[in-house]
Design a protein around this nucleic acid. Structure first.
Lengths: 254, 254
DNA sequence: GCATATGTCCGGTAATGCCGGATGGGGTAT
DNA sequence: ATACCCCATCCGGCATTACCGGACATATGC
């Protein structure tokens, strides 16, 4: 049809559309799904039946759910696994020290993925669950990662995903983004002032490998009223940076 | 071909074979994969390219990895989510009280899946990661679940998956299994004496819904030498049963 | 520079993914 | 009780495409 199709196996793409939609709907029947997907019922049913038989979905009297099998696949590739293992105890400490939420993010296909989070004693609830995918430019974590990428990579990512705004404070101009990235490179940490969620501020630092290429980022985030000028610009960045440094050292020497 | 195919979309099944093998190999190239799968290179490549383009896999200079996207899908259906949320703090307490490992399992497609685990202060390392799938009859958790299923369901499951042995103590005879299940129904809890891992014992209790149908099980497991006759048969079961009861109450009234 | 790996690409064809329509069951209101 | 509706499931056929053999470029090591 349209493009020369980098999708040589369209049925695979279709099957994942079904799974993804089923996940969003938190379970559904054939009719509901076929409407949401704008596909014939019978086609949807074909996929559901195959996936259920292969034990990736569960069928409870006509209502299908995403199965726990995907939990197993969620175990990451080894390299990421290492970052997860090294960083998890450190962000836990960070959350306890600061009282707020501490997060770990990696980049994949130009988007940010929350790999882990730790809830400090004073932390408020967030809409960030593990596995959540966000645009890099909307979070301090993502900007921290972008700041260590080459300009070509940044351009590629922006071209691919754009700079959609999620709050009125989100950066939507690429020049403004690049200026911020330069600033982040300078001082070593990134901030997010209600750019993804109104009422929330965030401070993040990149984690790099021995070649200075970014492999992820960590952050501390909390409500704007607790992140006043002094903590937001001094204490919190200091904690985040020192934790990032500990993680980098432990990544290379272990 | 062989069966009248409950797989109306074979390409979907194929794609998941590719993903699953890639996961087992912890990342691989096209050639290695095509050999492991006994499929033509070009076919494997078609799938890899599609899955990578759809952002489910990651390609690092020809080596493919399972992407973190599956983390997101690993978020369970709502009903299971509730059990997870209710049971997680309780098994954490259980692990702290007993000092050992505490686990949460559900059944899916006739197999047991570890939904969560909590490591007590004295716990030794285990090969059970979250998402791991095991045969029900090889664990106390699985037997606890089976004990609350009807005999027909037990027969179905055994017929489907068999009773493979993983240690010399694994139950391999269906009559013996059914006798144990009756005993478990009687006293309310199940035990596993080195039936899945030599050197490990385990005590488990089922979690049922308001209709007395099993929705999961919890357990405490530890090294044989610490699970002596008195704790193995009295104290531990008491703790496990009371925790299971708390979870059941919290599931129905909340 | 040769030999042998690798990952990637192309094009034809037999197989099958897709879809309209039919079937039967479960619920509900009349 | 009955008629109605919506549901998941099944069937059959056609156009599409998943699959595969083979060719190509590149990388590594002898």
């Amino acid at each position: 049809m349209a493009s020369k199709s980098r999708y040589p196996v369209q049925a695979a793409a279709t099957t994942f559309r079904v799974i993804e939609t089923l996940h969003q709907l938190n379970g559904a029947g054939v009719s509901e799904l076929s409407e949401a997907l704008e596909m014939p019922k019978s086609t949807v049913h074909d996929h559901l039946q195959t996936l259920t038989e292969a034990e990736y979905l569960v069928n409870e009297n006509g209502t299908y759910h995403v199965g726990a099998r995907f939990l197993e696949l969620g175990g990451f590739a080894r390299s990421q696994m290492k970052l997860y293992q090294v960083a998890s105890p450190e962000i836990k400490k960070l959350a306890e020290e600061t009282g707020e939420h501490a997060n770990l993010m990696i980049e994949e296909h130009g988007k940010g993925i929350f790999l882990n989070k730790s809830k400090g004693p004073d932390a408020v609830n967030l809409d960030t669950h593990i596995g959540k995918r966000v645009h890099l430019h909307t979070t301090a974590l993502g900007k921290a990662i972008l700041s260590r990428e080459s300009e070509e990579v940044v351009d590629e990512i922006v071209e691919r995903h754009g700079l959609p705004s999620v709050t009125e404070k989100t950066i939507t101009d690429i020049e403004e983004l690049k200026q911020q990235l330069a600033k982040i490179r300078d001082r070593g940490y990134a901030i997010d002032d209600e750019e993804r969620v109104i009422g929330m501020r965030c401070v993040a630092a990149p984690i790099c490998d021995e070649n200075e290429r970014p492999i992820g980022a960590i952050s501390v985030s909390g409500p704007t009223n607790r992140f006043d000028e002094s903590t937001f610009n001094a204490e919190i960045p200091k904690s985040v940076l020192s934790t990032a440094n500990v993680i980098e050292v432990n990544m290379t020497y272990s």
